[in-house]
Design a binder for these strands. Sequence first.
DNA 1: CACAGTATCTTGCATTGCAAGGTACTTACT
DNA 2: AGTAAGTACCTTGCAATGCAAGATACTGTG
Lengths: 108, 108
Amino acid sequence: MNIQFKKGVLEICVLSVLAHKDCYGYELVSEISKRIDISEGTIYPLLHRLKDEGYVTTYLQESAGGPPRKYYRLTESGRKEEHEQKEEWMRFAASVNALLEGKNNAAE
Amino acid sequence: MNIQFKKGVLEICVLSVLAHKDCYGYELVSEISKRIDISEGTIYPLLHRLKDEGYVTTYLQESAGGPPRKYYRLTESGRKEEHEQKEEWMRFAASVNALLEGKNNAAE
DNA sequence: CACAGTATCTTGCATTGCAAGGTACTTACT
DNA sequence: AGTAAGTACCTTGCAATGCAAGATACTGTG
């Protein structure tokens, strides 16, 4: 898997999963890994960035076996960001697909 | 436009355009710019990288008004790479779309 | 008691796109 | 002649982000 493809995309993936339900970091890795390889060394810095930017808040919760989990919840600003980035990704992917299919005339 | 989205993608875009016809650098910028913003500071290092990796060869050609143009032509290895990267992009984009649509069960 | 699993985190590296700048040629306008 | 705009090539240094590798610490199993 081309690592470069993921740049910036993992952020919207995290926001999108969090839009459905609150998650803790480790859980996000396993959720996203069903579709796209992602490592822990990626997710934690990313989550801290999202918190710094005010897109998520956190709360701790005990877990049955293992250390407590730090859950992440989208803020209003985070929901707005999720929506905007999703649209931007859709537009971008459509542009790339058009280019790869040789539809090089932007008018169509 | 999120700059990060482009990481790695511009390479397959260049390969894809070159798969249709030989181009010079400046022409590639204008072709790709119809769909995706790209600057000259990006394309020239990228083209040199592609040449180093053996995916393209170059030849010079006079131009009517202005300096001579350096055309880039895909090699056999370049065509193979174009094909593989295109498939990888398609798979990747499909995975991201599935994630963003909340189809979090990888089985489907 | 050692190991695997859960769960958090940090450091340093690699890659790549861009802004900004430089060079040089041709054409058009003043 | 001089200046600007368009064409066409290039380089340097910076910013962003994903990852490998490692550290920490708790629980349950063999």
